[in-house]
Computed example of a mutant assay.
Amino acid sequence: MTNDSKIPVVINGVAGKMGREVVKAIASSEDILLVGAVDRNLSVLGQDAGELAGCGPLEVPVLNDLQSVLVLATQSKIQGVMVDFTHPDGVYENVRSAIAYGVRPVVGTTGLSATQIADLGEFAEKASTGALIIPNFSIGMVLLQQAALQAAQYFDHVEIIELHHNQKADAPSGTAIKTAEMLSNLGKKYNPPLVEAKETFAGARGATLGDQIPIHSIRLPGLIAHQEVIFGAAGQIYTLRHDTSDRSCYMPGVLLAIRQVINLKSLVYGLENIL
């Protein structure tokens, strides 16, 4: 396969742990080509993205100007893609910039608000540009969420615990929010109160989505990404748990998203919607 027939991809946040994994995944793929690499970390500017990721030189230098690099993804007959693993503070503008350039964003950065996602959806729709916002690229997490939807038919009490490394900037995690949204969208009421509860310390019972499903966030070194959905009923507890031991588990989902987003004309939220 020639380079002209491969999907051109720009990685934003290439020096991060997820960014480096994406470089390695793309380098080993046959139909995707890394054409640009962006990061705000000044210590890596000018370095070869492949050498930075540990997979050998790719002749793609790390730059810090996203818009100039996005242009590189528009110089092929195949629609270009931007993969974003950056920071909640900048992801909204990153996605808007990509759409404005006609580059399809695949977003793994969490922290976007519901209002921001809706706004980006309107922008993508007007531009007829595909976009994917994926809180979690793990196939195992998609299966956990589907199992939670099944369990919710039989349990009225549920809480979510999400555990991440202590360098994660946002809480709750996008995956936990997505899971709670999926359960809430079933239209049933959860956790009917049995007593008048009082928190001695604010937040002791976690954050809640729609005053129904508590989400508890833990941030510790040694963790990567983990989630439990715990259902309770008289005499029984049903726990669904997903554990990440290596970030390579996300790469099949990332590559799938890159291949799928070039066929979309609007924004899609959630990996389950492209499987």
Rank of each mutant, 00 (worst) to 15 (best):
V35D: 08
L58I: 07
D65T: 05
V69D: 01
L112R: 02
A127L: 15
F85A: 08
S138F: 08
G108S: 09
G80K: 08
R96C: 04
V60T: 01
A127Q: 14
F123D: 07
M82C: 03
V83Q: 03
S29M: 00
A100Y: 02
A53P: 05
L45Y: 00
T74E: 03
A98E: 03
A124R: 13
D89A: 15
R104Q: 13
P61Y: 09
F85D: 01
Y92L: 13
A147W: 10
L143Q: 13
S68T: 01
Y101I: 05
A148C: 03
A100M: 04
D48N: 07
A131R: 04
V142S: 14
A25I: 07
G50L: 10
V35A: 08
S128L: 11
P105Y: 04
T109W: 00
L42Y: 09
N136I: 09
L63D: 07
Q145A: 12
A114D: 13
P57A: 10
V38A: 04
Q79D: 06
G80W: 09
V38W: 02
V103A: 11
I133P: 03
L34Q: 09
N64V: 06
A53V: 11
Q145Y: 12
N64T: 09
K17T: 15
T129C: 15
V142W: 12
K77A: 15
V44T: 13
N136L: 11
I133G: 02
L144I: 14
T86V: 04
S43T: 15
E122V: 12
V71K: 08
A27L: 02
D84T: 12
I26Y: 10
S68V: 00
V44L: 05
A147Q: 12
A147H: 07
N94H: 12
V44C: 09
Q75H: 11
A98F: 12
L72R: 08
H87I: 02
R40T: 06
G19C: 11
E125Y: 10
A49K: 05
S43C: 12
T129W: 00
V91T: 15
S97A: 13
P57D: 12
L132N: 02
V142Q: 11
V95L: 10
S138Y: 06
A118L: 15
R104G: 09
D84K: 01
K77S: 15
V60A: 04
V44K: 06
G130I: 05
Q145L: 13
E122A: 11
L144N: 10
M18R: 05
Q79V: 07
N136Y: 08
C55Y: 04
A131V: 07
V60R: 00
L66C: 09
L33A: 03
M18Q: 13
H87G: 00
I117L: 07
V106C: 14
Q116W: 05
V106D: 07
